[in-house]
């Protein structure tokens, strides 16, 4: 038996909006730790890892580990039927081939339930090694989204370079080229407006902007994004989900063969 009650139901809608462009079908795993998901896009270029910790739910009951295969477009369709302030409860019986989303209005005067069929998904689970990153950039998520959007209008790939001078986002395309340099800036009114660049070693990596832009669909989840770079590894773009967990996107670099 599974019963997860999330008072801030809109969070779940935002999570779905953040990943449904990248991944079509995925297994949601439920354990005593929390509600999680790991999935790759169909080309195996990007991976998303989501964790909503059990403590973040008002009520969390998961009698045994359960993996529920869902089509994310269908799940998003169902969640769209909830009100923005609704409490969402996810329910499933052991061995059931469906999951139920229950929506309660804040004043309890409207209660709906939507049942969705589950599906069998053959998915590989990958071990993500602990890593020492050459550089970690913490910046306003809206600024990162703007840079990715702006550069994608010029080129298809972005080179992200971190040096003593700051972090540079560069692209090149048929109509020209663009460079955006950000310097560390901690003299801001609010901590979430700061740009913090932690560099252990200079690093420069090339990525497909299409994926970066897809990751920025998570912007409504957090004011801050953290970008971790290492020359040997996929970049990690992380959005923290307030008091609940995180959504992390991993993107494999473009490599000179």
């Amino acid at each position: 038996m599974l019963e997860l009650r999330l008072v801030q139901g809109s969070l779940l809608k935002k999570v779905l909006d953040a990943i449904k462009e990248l991944v079509k079908d995925a297994n949601f795993d439920c354990s005593t730790t929390g509600f999680s998901l790991q999935a790759m896009d169909s080309s195996h270029v990007a991976l998303v890892s989501l964790l909503l910790r059990a403590e973040g739910f008002e009520h969390y009951r998961c009698d045994r580990n359960l993996s529920m295969g869902m089509n994310l477009d269908n799940m998003a369709k169902m969640l769209k039927c909830s009100g923005n302030d609704d409490i969402i409860t996810i329910k499933a019986d052991d061995g059931s081939d469906s999951v139920t989303f229950m929506f309660e209005s804040p004043t309890q005067d409207k209660i709906s339930d939507f049942e969705m069929k589950l599906m069998d998904i053959d998915s590989e689970h990958l071990g993500i090694p602990e890593a020492e990153y050459h550089a970690i950039i913490r910046m306003p998520s809206a600024e990162f989204a703007k840079i990715c959007r702006d550069l994608a209008s010029i080129g298809d790939t972005v080179v992200i370079s971190v040096s003593k001078e700051g972090v540079k986002f560069s692209t090149r395309g048929d109509i020209g080229a663009a460079n955006v340099v950000l310097r560390q800036n901690t003299t801001v009114d609010k901590p979430e407006e700061a740009t913090i660049i932690e560099m252990n070693e200079p690093v420069s990596l090339t990525f497909a902007l299409r994926y970066m832009n897809s990751f920025t669909k998570a912007t409504p989840l957090s004011n801050i994004v953290t970008i971790s770079l290492s020359s040997e590894l996929p970049v990690v773009v992380e959005y923290k989900i307030a008091e609940m967990g995180y959504i992390r996107f991993y993107l494999a670099p473009k490599i000179e063969e």
Partner: peptide
């Protein structure tokens, strides 16, 4: 130009 690598090149199946 540089070629797109895949996630499975870096992370192993468990």
């Amino acid at each position: 130009g540089p070629k797109q690598s895949t996630i499975t090149r870096f992370f192993n199946k468990i």
